[in-house]
Design a protein around this nucleic acid. Structure first.
Lengths: 186, 186
DNA sequence: ACCTGAACACCGTTCAAGT
DNA sequence: ACCTGAACACCGTTCAAGT
């Protein structure tokens, strides 16, 4: 005699993401997830293979949202303006979803690595912009320079690694300015 | 009747760092640490307040070693050569101690944050080099640009985030070259 | 002063039993 | 087909008892 599902994978994923954003990955328990969707922990295993599997679903969800956000920041008009917009949008996203953002670049066991195509899609906007900026030959190298810097900046910021004084927002603008100059054709 | 200590804080810290490097932070248990120094888990609490405290000690150890390594990479002769050497030395360190490196920038509960002065010392070499390169006014911004990029690059590399093809070592050299150019006075 | 076994609360996961 | 309680192995930590 079948029982109608009391929840869904989408609901579980969304609840998990919210719990991670609130209490961090370390604070995430299967009990919390289960009770936040109205079931008991063992029932989760009818929807999900394991806690790691659940984390992977959340990472993919975050990566898709980041990709959409970055894409939306581009106008396709001015490569320099787009590069600046991309960097600012990236930073804004990380500030808005710090735990989810952290998760995306966390060390994850190989079995729970997110789908590579989803991660690739998230890096598409950067590739697009740098291609317009430096041309196709250097575009991959340029995209890696840009994303490594933004990611590193934001990660250090979130980890509280910028201990010394000074305006951090201004340091970010300094970085963009110099990077754009370094990538612009002479 | 006192019992002579069978181990020491230094030995415990070093054993913990080795275990983290081998099995990652998630795989670290107090049992493992204890047995690797020849005692039982509860005895660890005579040397250390908690697992988090132990992790903090390891982070401080790693940060000190990184600081010494970076300092040793500098010659003080040519600011451009020193900047390049600093970046390469940083990357080499991360490759040599990937888990320990990751740890340094991990999200740590406030109570177990490492001593700020130790982390500050580790960033001293970067400040020194960029100061020679761009002058004191922009040196903090420049150091942040440089370290954010190196850190981001290495983190993405370690996380397997550079999924697209292309020589990663060459992407690193591309990054240094453009950054040095961006920071050099015209 | 340091170490230990026993115990506690908590966790992820499995499984037989319910509807 | 989905959900549950009970159980398992494991974890960090506490504490009384040993030397």
């Amino acid at each position: 005699m079948p029982t109608p599902a009391r929840t869904s994978l989408a609901e579980i994923t969304s609840a998990t993401r919210q719990l991670i954003e609130t209490g961090g990955l370390d604070g995430l328990t299967m009990q919390h997830v289960a009770s936040s969707v109205g079931i008991k922990a063992p029932s989760l295993y009818k929807h999900v293979q394991s806690r790691g599997d659940l984390v992977r679903l959340v990472i993919e969800d975050v990566a898709e949202e980041l990709g959409r956000t970055l894409q939306a920041a581009l106008t396709g008009q001015d490569p320099i303006a787009d590069t600046v917009a991309l960097a600012r949008s990236f930073r804004e996203f990380a500030h808005g979803h710090p735990e989810a953002y952290r998760l995306m670049f966390a060390a994850i066991p190989d079995e729970w690595r997110p789908d590579p195509s989803i991660m690739a899609a998230a890096s598409q906007p950067a590739l697009e912009t740098t291609s317009a900026l430096v041309g196709p030959a250097d575009s991959l190298n340029a995209a890696r320079l840009l994303t490594a810097w933004v990611h590193g900046f934001v990660t250090m910021e979130l980890a509280g690694a910028f201990r010394l004084d000074g305006d951090i927002g201004q340091a970010f603008e300094f970085g963009i300015e110099r990077l754009v100059a370094a990538l612009s054709p002479d």
